[in-house]
Design a protein around this nucleic acid. Structure first.
Lengths: 207, 207
DNA sequence: GGCTTTAGGATAGAGCCACTATCCAATGCG
DNA sequence: CGCATTGGATAGTGGCTCTATCCTAAAGCC
């Protein structure tokens, strides 16, 4: 198919497709001639992925480019997962907490859960965030971290098990990124509901 | 104090303060004369709040204005909490899932946890989100929802207990919004770590 | 009393981002 | 043969949050 049809099938305007081509998000089609190129189903899939990462997960062009480039360079599933995580976690690194990152709390969690031991970005991000929370006086008692990590362990188990056979790299990225985002939003909504409930109980009591 | 000093104390540029005044985020100072106004410590506090909501929580001007207006109109703590939740939850209502909102799953959670019964925005948001997840084929088994809600129940308990005596409305908003955001980010990081761990185990096994 | 500084008001511009539109020459397709 | 389409280039749009400039009037200070 050529550009116009690709646009129709993906629901992305021809102008935007050109933009993505320029930005290196979408690989160029097979150039039949100087003024004619053929696009495939993979291009449609890629466009779907780009759309999802933009509109659902909220990544920007540069972040998407980074991930896709890795995918196209034949990165492993683990590497891709790590890349997706890096980007999603840094969505708002409002303050790059630097300084000596005490690896304590995350290590404890890892030990407690019996997770494989490897000092990852995810672990650093967790430690940095815990420091940040402490610095703004939000207490995170050990038991809470325990409860949280247990819950997350359960999700991850379900998630990874479900992600058995990703047909394509694009699909792997899609499920990883969208899944993380969806679960995170789900938790946020549950937290809101829980908070509202607790607040109601408390303030009614006061009154 | 006057504008310049307010700017120095809050770390917000004079131009931005003027902008916030124009946008109705910051109440005008007490006009001593046509060309002189006095600002108070409350103005500094308000600016801190605005900064936090912008930079940490990532709200836009209109969202902040809405919350602050409620606060200044003397809304109750519950109303304010609800308003904050509404805004934070809608941060990315990528798809306003409408239609007959089956109140089933959230109701079950509420019953299970023994939360006070009131059909709230939070509950609707949860139901809508669960529908959305289902529509993109992300399974959320009942046990998972159970685990999640238990964890969130624990946090909310700690949170609300800690938020005993907010000295000012601004502080209440600050702790609510920042707290929600921080916990949500914490969970996201834990999820990332858990996923990475599970993925490592799984893929190592495969290899 | 004059000089500098500041307030408030208005308006315009900057900078970023993700597009979107226009123009072009070259060329394939019917 | 001629219309439509392509890749390539470039410029413009719209939303958002500031930031900068200009102005007049008045206060503070010596």
């Amino acid at each position: 198919m050529q550009l116009k049809e690709l646009s129709e099938q993906s629901g992305v305007s021809a102008a935007s497709i050109k933009y993505y081509l320029r930005e290196g998000l979408l690989p160029p089609g097979a150039a039949v001639h100087a003024t004619r190129a053929q696009y495939s189903a993979q291009h449609v899939e890629r466009l779907d992925l780009i759309q999802a990462l933009r509109r659902i997960v909220g990544l920007n062009i540069e972040q998407i480019r980074g991930i896709l480039r890795m995918a196209d360079d034949g990165a492993s599933r683990l590497e891709l997962l790590a890349a997706v995580q890096r980007v999603v976690l840094e969505l708002d690194s409002y303050a790059t907490v630097s300084g000596e990152v005490g690896t304590r709390p995350a290590d404890a969690v890892v030990r407690l859960r019996g997770w494989p031991d490897s000092p990852s970005d995810a672990r650093n991000a967790l430690n940095a965030h815990l420091e940040l929370m402490e610095s703004v006086n939000i207490r995170v008692p050990g038991e809470l971290l325990d409860t949280y990590s247990k819950a997350m362990d359960d999700v991850a188990g379900v998630d990874i098990a479900a992600t058995t056979a990703p047909d394509s790299v694009d699909e792997l990225i899609l499920t990883a990124a969208v899944g993380m985002h969806m679960h995170s939003q789900l938790l946020l909504r549950l937290l809101a509901l829980a908070q509202a409930s607790h607040a109601i109980r408390r303030y009614e009591q006061d009154a």
